[in-house]
Design a binder for these strands. Structure first.
Lengths: 346, 346
DNA sequence: CTGAAAGCGCTTACAG
DNA sequence: CTGAAAGCGCTTACAG
């Protein structure tokens, strides 16, 4: 697969073998007119034989495209690790990217300051053609930097303040309503929400959605606790809620890890699930299906979310703009962790 | 930060502003002799002012280095997601890589055939200077391809058959012994092992280590079950082991997710943890510290493992070879899931 | 101490 | 239908 001298083949090696100019090789390989079909076929055969692929560096220079996009995750590694979301999202991104021969550059950093520095560097070095932005904050300092640099980007999640950044977002309103409506139909009146990081925009959007969904049923939405998505804070939030004088009969969590933690806490506190406490998980991963009892969860296609985000970003890079898309709403998958409350609250 | 025409600055823009040749700019910026110190400073100031960074594509062309390394994860996305290992490992890799301004290209694929195709493509396109190879199989078809291509690589984990691929590996022998010795000291005689994927080399190495550790104490190692690391198979394996006529009083798991699943299964089957069943988890993530009861686990520094792997790979790329390294052995962190068996077995 | 030039591997007008 | 040449943004011998 390598040329005799041990180096990777170039169009020059192909041209030499075929006895034509390098220009002819390029035309032949790129399907452009200007070479006879026999010559073209001969060149293609030689290229395949040599295992030749165009050097990205050379293509980048001439086309001023990096043929790569970047993703920077700005959360502590320990938190990312246990969150099944990201791997599935990344798998979805790549399904779309690798089909188009675009590489994904991944960086994991501690905070937004580091993320901004990394973005600036990647852009200045022409490493990426665009960025996927996740975990948008209510006030997100990355946004003005993207604008300043003119760095094409797409947000995975709604953009605060409706900036000019196109986004692919989830229908949180519908998802949260589905969970609340179902619990209310079961007879629950006192429903709590264990939300994610308060600085995140989607945390606030979902809290708002929760409030509205409760209001539709004439119910107050007092029991809202924010967390950092970890098992620890999920457990703590559950403990807090279950220690209140009138405790909730149902809790809706913003991810699945915390919901599993809640099952453990309930058991530890002698609260039966689902008889005395119904639990709804926010994402439907392995954990939910196999916990004990299995968890009712909001299920949505995270890989598709990733794929759509990638597609939107590529469109943005190619056309200069992209429409903001809305993903299909999550659906409620009912399992063993939800039931009618044993003693109807109030 | 951009030049007046809106495009990213190049050394030509800097040269124009400074009134010198582009060669002088390059010398000044690379700290090479050939420019007066005043000129050098003026050039550096302009470069900083412009936010200039050398284009990787251009540097790649001249230096024939991609300034990137690749990581291809060949597991189903759903399995990867719940496995805290990978994010921590990647975070460790990047700690080392980004300090050296090397980018990490990540790809997630379904199987080794796809991984091989992706590796070939990356190498042919000159996208990467080297690869990190994880999850080595007992018979791993990626290895001959790396050799054929002459693609510098480093294995995270021991290499089957002691091929010429350098590796950074863990001391599985010591880790497994630590767990077995501790359980035996507590009075356990019947100890089971729930291992990972049987095709993986380290699964077999750890099983061997388990057998040897048991033999040291004159104990048989009959109860060994392999799994795919998922919650589901962890639960199933636990159920199988606990259904045997003489059931084990302790189980050592190959990751933490399965250990948490085992706690649930034990509860479901009315087996008290740790009184009737001691549980040791294979990796020490959040899940272990906060499960109920908290899990005794083999703790090791996965981020350091990633960092060392990256460093070894960079050395391999630079020097053409790298020594195989051995990580510090995992240590046993004792928590609430292990205790002396209530009724001493046998 | 500084400038002009070649070259890395491609693509793409531009001549023949 | 084909070849010779310029250019992408750098680095690095090589002259002055």
């Amino acid at each position: 697969m390598t040329t005799p001298d041990g180096r990777r083949p170039t169009i020059a090696s192909i041209a030499a073998r075929a006895g034509v100019s390098i220009g002819a090789v390029s035309y032949a390989l790129n399907g452009r007119p200007g070479v006879s079909s026999e010559t073209r076929q001969r060149i293609i055969d030689i290229a395949n034989d040599l295992g030749w692929r165009p050097s990205v560096a050379a293509r980048s220079m001439v086309g001023s495209r990096a043929h790569s996009v970047g993703l920077i995750l700005a959360r502590p590694a320990d938190t990312l690790g246990v969150e099944p979301f990201f791997m599935r999202f990344i798998a979805g991104l790549e399904r779309e990217l690798s089909a188009r021969r675009i590489a994904l550059l991944l960086q994991i950093v501690e905070d937004h300051a580091a993320a901004i520095e990394a973005m600036r560097l990647w852009w200045a070095e022409r490493r990426v053609d665009g960025m996927v932005i996740t975990d948008l904050w209510v006030k997100d300092e990355r946004l003005p930097v993207l604008a300043e640099l003119g760095l094409p980007a797409i947000a995975a999640g709604r953009v605060p303040g409706g900036g000019d950044l196109p986004s692919v977002s989830t229908d949180d309103e519908a998802a949260v309503s589905a969970a609340v409506d179902y619990l209310v139909a079961l007879g629950h009146r006192r429903i709590a929400r264990v939300a994610g990081l308060p600085v995140l925009n989607h945390t606030q959007l979902r809290i708002d959605a929760f409030r509205r969904a409760m209001r539709v049923h004439g119910l107050p939405a007092r029991d809202i606790v924010t967390t950092d998505y970890t098992w620890g804070e999920g457990a703590r939030a559950t403990r807090t809620l279950l220690s209140r004088r009138t405790r909730p009969t149902a809790i809706i969590f913003d991810n699945d890890l915390m919901a599993v933690a809640a099952v453990n806490v309930a058991q530890e506190m002698g609260v039966a699930v689902p008889a005395e406490l119904s639990i709804v998980a926010g994402d439907d991963s392995q954990l939910c299906a196999l916990a004990h009892p299995a968890l009712t969860a909001l299920a949505w296609d995270i890989q598709a979310y990733g794929a759509h985000t990638a597609r939107a970003l590529l469109q943005r890079i190619d056309d200069g703009h992209a429409p903001s898309l809305r993903e299909q709403a999550a659906t409620l998958v009912v399992r063993g962790s939800t039931a009618a409350p044993v003693k109807a609250a109030r």
